[in-house]
């Protein structure tokens, strides 16, 4: 289990850095697909099937096609260089940020299955959701029920935001349809 997880994390890191540094956008899209594959396996290993399925659908399917459509409508500069040169000041800033996150934030987070985590320290709440969810919503997966039913208005609000962004794009481009 841990052997799989460690090699996966190494694979994801390498693909993420390669995606960021590739000069050619089409190659970056292809390598981003590889990154998405690694992430889906990692989510599955962490027992988050709903997130893994979303990653599979969005990462491999929608994002690739969306980005391809984008570069089809813009220019794709050809170049001899394989990688973009690294911007040192940006690297320093991002490195400091990541260092702070890893050293300050990560120790504060609960480990997987930690009995002190809020999920377990309030067993009544967890138990109440597990007992009521199926009766209330008819959905067998409690996580899905919370996302789609109990937090339905929240999800609806997100959809409204995306819709508004689409309308705003049409207004800026002075068009009436997405075509």
């Amino acid at each position: 289990m841990s052997l799989v997880a460690y090699t996966l994390v190494a694979f994801i890191l390498v693909t993420a850095v390669a995606t960021a540094l590739f000069r050619d956008v089409l190659s970056a899209i292809v390598v981003f697909g590889a990154y998405s594959l690694g992430m889906a396996i990692l989510y599955t290993l962490l027992l988050a099937p709903d997130v893994a399925m979303t990653e599979a659908a969005i990462g491999a399917g929608v994002t690739t096609i969306l980005l391809l459509l984008t570069i089809a409508r813009t220019s794709r500069p050809s170049t001899e260089r394989l990688f973009e040169p690294i911007n040192v000041p940006a690297l320093v800033i991002v490195g400091a940020f990541v260092l702070v996150l890893v050293t300050q934030l990560l120790p504060e987070m609960y480990a997987v299955g930690d009995p002190a985590a809020p999920v377990w320290s309030n067993p009544e709440v967890t138990q109440a959701y597990l007992e009521q969810t199926y009766r209330d919503t008819g959905v067998q997966n409690a996580v899905t029920a919370v996302l789609a039913a109990y937090r339905g208005f929240d999800t609806f609000g997100e959809a409204v935001v995306v819709f508004a962004a689409g309308i705003a794009t049409l207004l800026v481009l002075k068009r009436e349809v997405f075509a």
Partner: peptide
């Protein structure tokens, strides 16, 4: 886990077709 494997098998094919089509006829995705 097999459900996710199935989804990936389908979408991986879709991704390959989309990129191939893009490289052959530029602009058609």
């Amino acid at each position: 886990f097999l459900d996710i494997a199935l989804i990936y098998a389908l979408l991986n094919f879709l991704m390959a077709v989309a990129i191939s089509k893009f490289t052959v006829e530029r602009g058609g995705v």
